[in-house]
Amino acid sequence: MRAEARAAGAREEHLVVVTEAPLVSGAEHALAQLVAGISDDMRVTVASVDAAVGGWVASHRPGAHTVALPSLSEKRDLLNIPHARKVLAALRPTVVHLNKTEVGGLRYFEIICHTLPNTRLVSVVHHVEAPGSFFSGLLSQLLARRSDAVIAVGRSLARELESLLRLPEGHVKAIHNAIDPASGFEGSRTRPHARPFTAGMLTRLVPHKRVEDVVCAVSQLEGAELLVGGTGPELNRLQTSVRRLGLGSRVHFLEWVEPGEVLDNIDVYVLTSKIEGHPISLLQAQRAGLPIVASNVGGVPEIVTEGVDGFLFEPGDVAALAARLRELANDDVLLSNMAAAARAAAARRPSPVEVATSYAEVFWPAAEAV
């Protein structure tokens, strides 16, 4: 709490961040950067459904607390609502930050938070996708209108969310994600002659990531290899597909690894998602000095400049993806120029401190009002 507020005896400022993610992905990386960078004057608690995810986020801030929340993702979980409210109310937050991976995420936690006294509710949306039903869309619209602030992690996502939920222009604030400039990724500077051209990605293995598209694209490039860092429910199916295509020696699933284990051993970064926000993995790839070939969705065009530091293609267009990878594999000058442009783009990105300051401008009014 700022000194003048503390001297006046105001309630201690307490930021509670809420996540129901079952594993660490880009949205949790963004949350960890925020937790690390927010003012030391604010007490921080990470409230999570998955203890491992909550502990990982909290580990980025010395002194941050963790608390376990019950799952509210299924209809059978609704009996847990009274317990969830009791847990959140006991924390007496001044600000609750809901870290949503999708528009309808954390819905029941959001309803609970609207009942907490003297609490500012900030809803942060990482992906924008049409709600599954009319009722779901209407509820998302009502909750967004009642929230004290709604944030999307990119300009295009903010406008898309306003359109989707019929919110007034300017209702959704855009705050981009950031990564630590001291991330330490090296990336491939000059490909060793002994190593084949290698593409790579860091991703959850779930259907909307469309990882099979890059597997098919790499199969069309003679001798090219693929490194995939990440795991998920699609892993077994993808491994079966790789074996069926005879790519067992060229496509490698590393499961969860440190980003550098992929980024330091590839020539180009690939993103094939059907839905995206402002992907942390692309920021990491640019920091590593890697050209990017990515699907033209969500906030991706705000990161990748077509023909300068990478290429964009329409999601699902495997032929276009393969053509761009082939172009980079066959042109070392183009690869080098795009790598330099990627590093330059990374240097222009806002720092985690700047991003945390933008969030603080949303959080602080709550502290002044309670």
Rank of each mutant, 00 (worst) to 15 (best):
1 M>F: 01
2 R>Q: 12
3 A>H: 09
5 A>W: 12
6 R>A: 10
15 L>S: 09
17 V>Q: 06
20 E>D: 15
21 A>S: 13
21 A>F: 00
24 V>C: 04
45 T>L: 02
45 T>K: 06
45 T>P: 09
54 G>S: 13
58 A>C: 10
60 H>R: 14
66 T>V: 14
72 L>R: 04
73 S>G: 11
74 E>T: 11
77 D>Q: 03
83 H>A: 13
84 A>M: 11
85 R>G: 07
87 V>D: 07
88 L>K: 00
94 T>P: 09
96 V>P: 09
98 L>Q: 09
100 K>T: 07
102 E>M: 10
102 E>F: 10
114 H>C: 08
117 P>N: 11
119 T>H: 02
128 V>P: 00
133 S>R: 04
137 G>C: 00
141 Q>S: 12
145 R>G: 00
150 V>E: 02
153 V>W: 02
164 L>A: 03
166 R>T: 13
168 P>G: 04
177 N>Y: 02
181 P>C: 14
189 R>S: 08
189 R>Q: 12
199 A>Y: 10
199 A>L: 09
205 L>C: 09
210 R>L: 12
212 E>M: 10
217 A>T: 05
223 G>T: 02
223 G>A: 12
226 L>A: 02
227 L>K: 07
229 G>I: 01
232 G>H: 01
239 Q>C: 15
239 Q>N: 13
245 L>N: 06
246 G>Y: 05
248 G>Y: 09
256 W>C: 05
258 E>R: 13
262 V>Q: 01
267 D>L: 03
268 V>M: 03
270 V>S: 04
270 V>W: 03
271 L>I: 05
271 L>W: 04
278 H>S: 14
279 P>M: 07
279 P>K: 01
283 L>S: 00
283 L>E: 00
284 Q>C: 09
289 G>E: 07
289 G>V: 07
292 I>R: 03
293 V>K: 10
296 N>M: 13
301 P>W: 13
305 T>R: 14
306 E>F: 06
309 D>Y: 05
310 G>A: 08
315 P>M: 08
317 D>L: 06
320 A>D: 10
322 A>C: 02
322 A>P: 08
325 L>M: 13
325 L>Y: 08
329 A>W: 07
329 A>C: 12
334 L>Q: 06
341 A>F: 02
345 A>K: 01
350 P>F: 11
354 E>H: 13
359 Y>K: 04
362 V>R: 12
368 E>N: 14
369 A>V: 14
